[in-house]
Design a protein around this nucleic acid. Structure first.
Length: 401
DNA sequence: TCTGGGGTCCTAGGACCC
DNA sequence: TCTGGGGTCCTAGGACCC
């Protein structure tokens, strides 16, 4: 066992992570802003992505934009252009698919892939492989990605982080792996969050290396599957698969949430916001032709306390009217006197493809579909004349209070 | 940090059945 | 019922992610 020879026949895992992705995409349209401190998030009121120059100034993720403006007036703050990000992200995966066997769209700015050793050999080794891939992405798209190549998904994910931005890290020898694990604090491992860090620290586990070295049996007594899986992955054991070709219609939930200002304790204001959430979520569901029969919704107080409610539908629907009817009796239970609410949300769960939605005995399904058609008409009107032009009465009733 | 929005997976425990 | 053991399904909620 001592001279573990690296298995030449096994696929490797690649992780690609867009560098300051949203900002980088914006710069493809605004080359004049290159080298300047730029932040995306104008429309959300917080910094969602920062250019390296903005980070250097001290802008952090989540910082309110009003504060950025006050502290760093030289920062350029831009709104989102999601269509642009989606397009660049899609083209990135297309490029990657000519280098890799399977490609997983993990998020808008990250993907995983499986790479054949023969492919790497073809490029003359992992260094060249990564370099060619990186250059093609950069040349074609005008944005940069950090790349990580390793024996497992989690190792690849850690590898891409090591030299970000613009990183190209292959963690292939055991020595390199160990060095990387020792340099990785436990909290920086993908999948170890705020709650788990203190538990591990209490055991004297401070780095990824400590985690790998900790006796498995002891670990299993104190932690459950997610942590144990991570330990294995970091040790080089393949647990997580690359999930390519995931059907977007197999989505489990659709949610729409929004923060409003000022926060309000007025039930009709809060209800109006929920109605908008319901319309948004249902609109999205109709676009992908999914329907739900289980709705959860929440209010979030100005103290950031969440309160959830739940309602069942007797049939599958994507009609905001049906959703709101179901929610209505539960709604008052979430409210507390004088508690001010800053945001609300509606989550459609238990999604089913519209064409598979069962007809119920009383034909309510048909009723729902008919109403869906009414909503579709409304969707078209909105598309044509803008979002505010039509809505349910409940969300149109602005300015009553 | 006066702090946005959209997701997934895992687990414990209860309901129900044989 | 002063009752054993085992299985499945569902739900609430925790934890984590970008």
């Amino acid at each position: 066992m001592s001279s573990q020879k690296e298995d030449q026949s096994k696929d490797l895992f690649l992780h690609a992570d867009g560098d300051s992705f949203f900002v980088a995409c914006e710069l493809t349209r605004r080359p004049d802003l290159k080298g300047k401190p730029v932040v995306v998030g104008e429309d959300r009121g917080i910094a969602v992505a920062m250019s390296p120059e903005a980070k250097k100034l001290g802008v952090t993720r989540g910082m309110p934009t009003f504060r950025i403006k006050k502290l760093f007036p030289e920062v350029v703050i831009l709104p989102h252009h999601f269509d642009l990000y989606l397009e660049i992200s899609g083209r990135m995966r297309q490029i990657l698919s000519s280098y890799a066997r399977e490609v997983e769209e993990y998020s808008i700015d990250e993907c995983f892939a499986r790479v054949r050793p023969s492919e790497i050999k073809y490029f003359g080794g992992e260094k060249n492989f990564l370099k060619e891939l990186k250059e093609e992405i950069e040349k074609t798209l005008g944005v940069t990605y950090s790349l990580g190549l390793a024996r497992t998904k989690v190792l690849a994910k850690q590898a891409s982080k090591l030299e970000k931005p613009g990183g190209m890290v292959a963690l292939l020898s055991r020595e390199d792996e160990m060095k990387a694990l020792k340099a990785t604090p436990i909290g920086e491992i993908w999948g170890i969050g705020r709650r788990t860090v203190p538990k591990l620290t209490a055991l004297g586990v401070g780095t990824a290396y400590d985690l790998v070295r900790y006796p498995e049996g002891e670990m299993a007594k104190k932690f459950s599957r997610p942590v144990l899986d991570l330990k294995k992955e970091l040790s080089g054991e393949e647990i997580f698969e690359v999930r390519s070709n995931v059907d977007p219609r197999s989505q489990k939930s659709i949610q729409a949430t929004a923060t409003f200002r000022p926060a309000s304790a007025n039930p009709s204001v809060i209800w109006r916001e929920l109605a908008r959430n319901a319309e948004e979520a249902c609109g999205h569901a109709r676009e992908v032709r999914l329907a739900s029969n289980k709705i959860s919704f929440f209010v979030k107080s100005s103290e950031f306390k969440y309160r959830y409610g739940e309602a069942k539908l007797l049939f599958f629907s994507s009609d905001p009217g049906a959703v709101l009817n179901a929610i209505e009796p539960e709604f008052p239970k979430l409210l507390r006197k004088r508690e001010r609410i800053r945001s609300t949300g509606v989550i459609l769960q238990n999604l089913l493809r519209e064409e598979k939605a069962p007809l119920d005995l009383f034909g309510r399904q048909m009723e729902a579909l008919k109403r869906t058609r009414v909503e579709e008409t409304a969707d078209k009107i909105r598309k044509k004349f803008g979002k505010g032009s039509i809505g349910r009465a409940s969300s149109m009733r602005r300015k009553k209070d």
